[in-house]
């Protein structure tokens, strides 16, 4: 796909994000769009957000569970960039008016103390390079109408990233079984669903290793201090005004998030 078309589609997604509206699936308009094209569109969209004043604070890994990979017809995860404007503090209510068609996912986030440079990175390297892990919520959102996404659509749309919240309880992955740690998700005080770390690529550390290797191939830096959302351990939870969600990771702690207002779609 030529550079001008890449820029055009990246700009279109940026404009849609800023105006809180959706666009038709890219795959419908560009049937031959390759995954590499989709990542180039994502780069353009993020470039626009950085030009508007945001900074890169980390990465998110998406499409990490088998059901989602089966649904999208892929055999590997995808990734997006986390920017400063996506960060929300635990305890503050997230204004749904800033989002289009949000859904929440409970995840484990990693913060690195050392850079990771792929290829050749394994899960053991990830544990060694990790400063701490924390329970978190990612609020995914799609700039594609009605979430009618193929893998190229979600990749171009920054892996459907919306905003995220990190919990307060930090843990050392050497002292916690991140693969078998259970995940309990409650919505408005009632049990919603449960999960476990292994839901993410067999272990969240495998997903982070995949990311390090993928970024290495693309020449994108993966730096100490960055936040990595490792992939959803829960089902997608629709959220509305007044909802409160709590996720608790066994042996680690909780993350709590509240919502107010109404989303655009």
């Amino acid at each position: 796909m030529d550079e001008s078309r890449i820029r055009q589609l990246g700009d279109e997604l940026f404009d849609a994000w800023r105006a809180r509206r959706t666009v038709a699936p890219l795959v419908e308009r560009e049937p031959d769009i390759a995954l590499e094209d989709a990542y180039r569109i994502q780069s353009r969209y993020i470039e626009r957000r950085l030009a508007a004043g945001e900074t890169i604070v980390g990465k998110k890994i998406g499409v990490t569970s088998k059901p989602v990979q089966d649904f999208l017809g892929v055999f590997q995860p995808d990734f997006g960039q986390l920017t400063s404007g996506m960060v929300h503090e635990e305890g503050e209510a997230i204004d749904l008016g800033t989002l289009i068609q949000p859904k929440a996912e409970a995840e484990l986030a990693f913060v690195l103390k050392e850079d990771l440079r792929g290829p050749g990175v394994t899960a053991m390297d990830v544990i060694r390079a990790t400063d701490y892990v924390v329970p978190c919520f990612e609020i995914v959102d799609s700039r594609i109408t009605d979430w009618k996404i193929r893998i190229q659509d979600t990749v171009a749309d920054n892996a459907s990233c919306g905003v995220f919240v990190l919990g307060g309880s930090r843990g050392d992955p050497r002292r916690l079984d991140i693969t078998l740690a259970g995940m309990v998700l409650e919505k408005n005080g009632e049990l919603h669903s449960t999960g476990v770390g292994a839901a993410v690529q067999g272990s969240p550390a495998n997903a982070v290793a995949w990311l390090a290797n993928t970024l290495g191939e693309l020449g994108i830096p993966f730096k100490a201090g960055e936040v990595i959302l490792s992939g959803s351990q829960s089902a997608l939870v629709p959220v509305a005004d007044g909802d409160e969600l709590v996720c608790t990771v066994g042996g680690l702690g909780s993350c709590r998030v509240k919502f107010s207002g109404r989303s655009a779609a």
Partner: peptide, 13 residues
């Protein structure tokens, strides 16, 4: 309450 469990059959979750 938060104890995690994985069930594998023939090596697959």
């Amino acid at each position: 309450r938060t104890l995690g469990v994985v069930l594998e059959k023939n090596g697959e979750i």
